[in-house]
Computed example of a mutant assay.
Amino acid sequence: MIKRMLKLLVGLVAVGLVIGLVAGGWLGWQAWKFLNTPSESPGREVVLDIQPGETFAHVAVELERKGVITDAEKFRLLGRWRKATGHVRAGEFALNTGMVPDEVLKTLTTGTEMLHRLVVREGLAWWETAKLVEQAGLGSFESFKAAVHDPELLAKHNIQADSAEGYLFPETYMLPKPKGNDARAVVEVMLGHFATAAGKVWPQGLPEPRKLHELVVLASLVEKETGAPAERPRIAGVYANRIERGMRLQCDPTIIYGLGESFDGNIRKAHLLDADNPYNTYRINGLPPGPIASPGLESLKAAAEPEKHAYLYFVSRQDGTHQFSKTLEEHNAAVREYQLRRH
Rank of each mutant, 00 (worst) to 15 (best):
A185D: 04
L175H: 01
D319M: 12
H149Q: 11
V59S: 02
V119Q: 00
W81F: 14
A84Q: 08
L328S: 04
I19D: 03
P52A: 04
L312P: 05
V18R: 06
F314W: 13
L212K: 05
L63G: 14
P291V: 01
A161L: 08
T85H: 04
R210F: 03
A303W: 06
S294T: 06
V46Y: 09
P52Q: 05
E188H: 01
A240V: 01
K301I: 03
V120T: 03
A293T: 05
Y311N: 14
E134V: 00
V186L: 00
E208I: 04
I292K: 05
N158S: 12
R245G: 04
S299H: 11
E103S: 10
G24C: 01
L48E: 06
A293Y: 10
R4T: 12
D49N: 12
S294E: 09
I69M: 02
A183K: 00
A57G: 10
S262I: 03
P52F: 02
H309A: 15
R121D: 04
I243Y: 13
V201H: 11
L132T: 01
A147H: 07
V22D: 09
Q30M: 12
Y311V: 01
K145G: 09
S140E: 01
M190K: 04
G265S: 06
G320V: 08
I69N: 07
V201L: 12
L312F: 15
Y167W: 15
Q204N: 13
A155D: 11
L218S: 06
E92M: 02
G139K: 00
L105S: 13
Y173F: 15
G192F: 07
F75Q: 09
G24M: 03
S294P: 15
A198H: 02
T281K: 08
K3M: 12
H331E: 07
L215K: 08
G43T: 15
S163T: 12
E329Q: 14
G290Y: 05
L215D: 09
T226E: 02
E64V: 13
D319Q: 13
Y257E: 14
I2V: 13
L17Y: 07
L218W: 09
P52V: 11
K106H: 09
G86S: 06
I256N: 02
A310W: 06
L108P: 15
W26C: 10
N266H: 14
G67F: 10
L95D: 00
L249G: 05
L108K: 03
K33V: 10
L48A: 06
E54M: 09
L328N: 08
S325T: 07
G137L: 01
W202K: 10
A293C: 10
G180W: 02
P42C: 12
E113C: 01
A183E: 00
E231A: 07
K179Q: 08
L312G: 03
L287G: 12
E92C: 02
A60R: 03
Q204R: 11
H322A: 08
A293V: 06
A90L: 02
G237E: 07
G290C: 10
V104G: 08
R342M: 11
K326T: 14
E152G: 13
L12E: 04
P229C: 05
G290K: 09
E40A: 15
F141T: 00
H343N: 14
V238C: 14
H271A: 03
N158I: 07
A195C: 02
G166M: 03
P151G: 11
L175C: 00
L115Q: 01
K7N: 13
A185N: 05
I292A: 08
L108F: 06
